[in-house]
Design a protein around this nucleic acid. Structure first.
Length: 586
RNA sequence: GCCUUGAUAGCUCAGUUGGAUAGAGCGUCCCCCUCCUAAGGGGAAGGUCAGAGGUUCAAUUCCUCUUCAGGGCGCCA
């Protein structure tokens, strides 16, 4: 509807330009905006173009508005056009326009609200990508909920979406993890081990160690005194925890055969990754691809990426290392690709990963990262440019961390220390629907205080139930039809019986749905849907309370049924879109 | 120090890309089931949009500075 009005205005303005009443050099499309009004007294839509152009046209805004509105031809979807305030043009739609929308919803059903604004374009969304060093915690949950909602939203408006999880299964953290498992395993074998402070402390490490012990008995066992011989002291004994753990990793690799080490490593990765995967599936988050960092090195993608940068002369050697001159592309400083010791940096494999993404031919790449990675954006974009792509092809969306509270107590959130609330715990206590809704209800880049007590204790007062209740209530009315042995006979002409202000308000909100979807998709803001749903549910509840649906008058009853059924359809469409259930009974 | 994100009702947060009288939820206070589900509805109170300048017909929105808070500034990942 907005589009129709937009086109109408464009035509009028172009006509005025032709007649030299408006300077033909002005780029009208740049300035023209049609927006919903806040206040029903201002009509349905408003346009501020007269005030915007007033200066350039050298007319006062109201005069210009009069000129524009005089060109409006009578139309069956506009009931009147008014000039108000400093020069707003207010547009009032006919009732019939709204009846048509109800009719469209009832005709298109599940497809109402879908669009093709992304048609033909493919987009890769990478999200969560938590290191496989432990279970997902509530911080990851936010990224998961946001990424999945965004992916669904973009699919809804026609994009071809590919969802991907990047598994960091190479690097030092993974070695610390495997070593942690091995040390716990040794304890199960009866060895007395002083567990390093920098190792992974969580109980899940014990579980994996126990698995290994069951399967391999004491096959990987070594004497404690041999293991810790000449290892630099840990932090509590006045040493350096990093040196201590690194030495233990080396020792682990020395004492075990390469094959044995790989067994522990692979087992650990598999257990944790399976856990993460199941966790996400239960949360309703599904991926098209799990991309392993190790694939990159195995297939020489890192070398390939570096060669490409070298070829374009974007690298240099200094202090025995290979550097990428990212400053040429707007980064703060140059970055190391190959360390003095010959190993690739994490950044090098990340460039390779993005090169790989690009070569898979996506039109657009979206990375959803935790806000702690924001300093990383500039260098990755620099790499994109150096590889010959436009930086705009990559959107990095940051999700701020949720700061967790239990009542007034701030909770620690360290994977290493093993003290964190898992996503699973949250979901099991609060429920999947409420958890999802709760997460995407707020703008992703907004800081968030997440009080667990509140989230749990308020689970019955969560807005999601309010919305679901609206849906269930409508189902209940429909069930009443059967009990009373009457039927819903739909006829678009009967919609004319919808005349009161509550019905009007409900129809206005219904008509807004496609615009909300479009805006949410264009701005990557799924939270708009949650606010929209609240609004729609409220309009329904108010209407339901003020008017009886199942009245004796056949025509009025059928009209009202049509309205609430179209309302239920939109509730269902929007809830489904954010992956929340639309129950028929509560 | 530099970069970055934020600051809106007692609390948690929206705010239609610069519009008309700044909005929800929770909490507080009144009122509403003989009636399709009260997990609901109606109403009230509650605001210097962190502060100060600037840009213009118009600023919560854009720019600058200040204050406060989160995050980032490795040959870690």
């Amino acid at each position: 509807m907005k589009i129709e009005l937009y086109n109408l205005f464009i035509n009028i303005l172009l006509k005025l330009q032709k007649n030299n009443l408006i300077n033909p050099e002005i780029n009208i499309k740049k300035y023209l905006r049609i927006e919903r009004t806040r206040n029903p007294q201002h009509g349905d839509f408003a346009c501020n173009i007269a005030m915007i152009l007033a200066k350039q046209v050298k007319k006062n805004p109201r005069e210009l508005a009069t000129l524009i509105t005089s060109k409006f031809s009578t139309d069956d979807f506009i009931s009147k056009v008014e000039i108000a305030g400093p020069g707003f043009i207010n547009i009032f739609l006919t009732k019939q326009t709204y009846y048509n929308i109800v009719d469209e919803i009832l005709t298109e059903k599940d497809n109402y609200g879908r669009s093709q604004i992304g048609a033909g374009q493919s987009v890769l969304i990478e999200f969560v990508s938590a290191n496989p060093t432990g279970p997902l915690h509530v911080g990851h949950g936010r990224g998961a909920a946001y990424g999945a909602a965004l992916a669904d939203l973009l699919t809804y408006v026609g994009y071809k979406v590919h969802k991907e999880y990047y598994v960091n299964d190479a690097g030092r953290q993974m070695n610390i993890l495997a070593t942690s498992v091995w040390l716990r395993y040794l304890e199960l074998c009866g060895e007395e081990v002083v567990f390093p402070v920098n190792a992974y402390q969580g109980d899940y490490i014990w579980d994996i160690a126990a698995d290994l012990h069951r399967q391999y008995n004491s096959g990987f066992q070594h004497q404690t005194d041999i293991i810790f011989k000449d290892i630099p002291p840990d932090e509590p004994k006045g040493g350096d925890k990093e040196l201590h753990i690194d030495a233990l990793i080396q020792r682990c690799k020395q004492l075990l055969t390469n094959e044995q080490y790989q067994i522990i490593f692979a087992k650990t990765l598999e257990v944790i990754l399976t856990n993460i995967r199941q966790d996400l599936i239960q949360f309703g988050v599904n991926y098209d691809e799990w991309f392993h960092e190790s694939q990159l090195t195995q297939n020489d993608w890192v070398t390939k990426a570096i060669e490409q940068l070298k070829l374009q002369q974007h690298t240099y050697e200094k202090d025995g290392a290979l550097w990428f001159c990212s400053t040429k592309f707007g980064d703060e400083k140059d970055r190391v690709l190959i360390r003095e010791n010959g190993e690739f940096t994490y950044f090098a494999s990340d460039i390779a990963y993005h090169l790989n993404k690009l070569e898979r031919g996506f039109d657009h790449l979206i990375n959803i990262w935790g806000a702690d990675h924001h300093g990383y954006t500039a260098r990755v974009k620099a790499a994109m440019m150096a590889l010959g792509t436009k930086a705009e092809k990559l959107s990095v969306l940051l999700v701020q961390f949720a700061v967790l509270y239990r009542g007034k107590e701030r909770l620690p959130m360290s994977t290493r220390s093993g003290e964190f609330i898992t996503l699973r715990e949250l979901r099991e206590e609060v429920g999947g629907d409420a958890t999802r809704f709760f997460y995407i209800q707020r703008k992703s880049e907004q800081h968030l205080n997440f009080d667990l007590e509140l989230a749990k204790s308020q689970s019955n007062e969560n807005p999601v139930y309010y919305i679901q209740y609206a849906h269930a209530r409508i189902s209940s009315v429909i069930r009443q039809l059967k009990d009373r042995n009457i039927t819903w006979d739909y006829n678009p002409k009967l919609l004319e019986n919808l005349t009161n202000s509550h019905e009007q308000a409900l129809m206005v909100t219904l008509s807004n749905y496609p615009e909300v979807v479009e805006q949410a998709a264009n701005n990557y803001e799924p939270h708009l849907l949650t606010y929209y749903l609240r609004q729609l549910a409220q309009d329904f509840h108010t209407y339901y309370d003020a008017h009886k649906i199942l009245v004796d008058d056949d025509n009025l009853r059928n009209a009202r049924l049509s309205l609430i059924i179209s309302c239920q359809q939109i509730l269902k469409n929007a809830l489904t879109l954010i992956n929340v259930n639309a129950p028929k009974v509560m």
